[in-house]
Design a protein around this nucleic acid. Structure first.
Length: 258
DNA sequence: ATGGCTTATGTGATAAGA
C-alpha cells in the first residue's frame, strides 16, 4: 500500500493536479490538507469517476482535510473520525479512517504565526491535544500512521537557512519538543528511515523564487508506528508537482508500505 | 526590507499562509 500526504492549498484550484498526481504516482491513500472549501464543494464525484473514494472535513475559506482512497481498498465506515475528540475546535484540521486495518490520520497542524502570539499558543494547545489522542489511538491500533502538514521542521537539516530561521516559527524549541514528544510515543519519521540526499524539503515560499533556489523547509511528514515502520520500504518527497503550472507551495510526501 | 506570492472573499482591500 502506497500512502501519501499533500497540502494542496485550495482543492478547488488543485483538483486536476490531485487527479493527475494520483494516477501518475500510483498512490492508494492520499491525505489532503488545506482544502479551503466546504463539504458541498468537495469534488467527490470527480474523484469517484477516477476510481477513488473520499472522506473529508471541510470549512469555508481556511483549513479542511481529507483522505482519498483507491476503490477496492477496505475502509471501515464506522472508523471515520473528524477533529480531535474532546478538543473543541471550529477549525477543521483532522480526519482519521481505518483502511485495510491501518489507522490513517490526515492532519493540518496550526501554522502558529510566530512564538508569543495567540496563534502560537493555540498551536501548542492543539499539539498537546493531538499527542494525547494519538497515544490512545496507537494503543487501539498497532498499525498507525500520522500524515500531514506538521508546520514543524524537526531539525536544522530540514531548513534551507537554519541560522536565519533560528528560534522562529516552524523551528522554535517548543514546537520541536512537541515533535519529539510525538516520536516518543513510538513513532518513526518514515523519511529519516532511509538514506536521503541533502537539502530535501516539502515546502517552498511562493515568493523570491524560493523553489528555484531550493529555499525550502521539510514540514510535511509521515510518522509510522513500529509495525508499519518495519514494513516501510521507501519514503520520498515528490518535487515534480511543485514544477507544474499554478502549483501548491507544498510537494507530496510518499511512503511505500510493504 | 517583516516584503517579496497565492488564495478566498467578493468586486477592492484585507487576512492568512509559513
Amino acid at each position: 500500500m502506497k500512502i501519501a500526504t499533500w497540502n494542496v492549498n485550495s482543492l478547488k484550484v488543485r483538483q486536476q493536479h490531485v487527479i493527475d498526481w494520483l494516477e501518475a504516482s500510483g498512490t492508494d491513500v492520499l491525505c489532503l490538507q488545506e482544502l479551503k472549501l466546504t463539504d458541498d464543494k468537495f469534488p467527490r464525484a470527480e474523484l469517484e469517476e477516477k476510481g477513488y473514494r473520499s472522506w473529508f472535513a471541510g470549512q469555508k475559506t481556511y483549513n479542511g482535510v481529507g483522505i482519498v482512497v483507491r476503490a477496492g481498498l477496505n475502509v471501515d465506515e464506522d472508523s471515520v473520525v473528524r477533529n480531535i475528540p474532546g478538543f473543541e475546535d471550529p477549525q477543521q484540521r483532522v480526519i482519521a479512517a481505518t483502511i485495510e486495518g491501518v489507522r490513517i490520520v490526515s492532519a493540518y497542524f496550526p501554522n502558529g504565526q510566530a512564538p508569543g502570539t495567540d496563534k502560537f499558543a493555540y498551536k501548542l494547545r492543539w499539539l498537546a491535544a493531538l499527542h494525547d489522542w494519538v497515544a490512545s489511538e496507537m494503543a487501539r491500533s498497532p498499525k498507525f500512521a500520522l500524515l500531514g502538514d506538521y508546520n514543524i521542521a524537526p531539525e536544522d537539516r530540514d531548513v534551507h537557512d537554519p541560522k536565519a530561521w533560528e528560534g522562529q516559527n516552524l523551528v522554535s524549541p517548543e514546537e520541536r519538543a512537541e515533535f519529539v514528544r510525538l516520536i516518543a510515543l513510538g513513532l518513526t519519521d518514515a523519511f529519516r528511515q532511509f538514506e536521503q540526499p541533502e537539502k530535501i524539503y516539502s515546502w517552498w515560499d511562493y515568493r523570491m523564487m524560493a523553489f528555484r533556489r531550493n529555499a525550502g523547509m521539510r514540514i510535511d511528514h509521515i510518522l509510522l508506528s513500529k509495525a508499519l515502520a518495519e514494513i516501510c520500504t521507501s519514503c520520498e518527497v515528490d518535487k515534480v508537482p511543485r514544477k507544474w503550472e499554478q502549483p501548491s507551495d507544498h510537494a507530496p510526501v510518499v511512503a511505500q508500505l510493504g
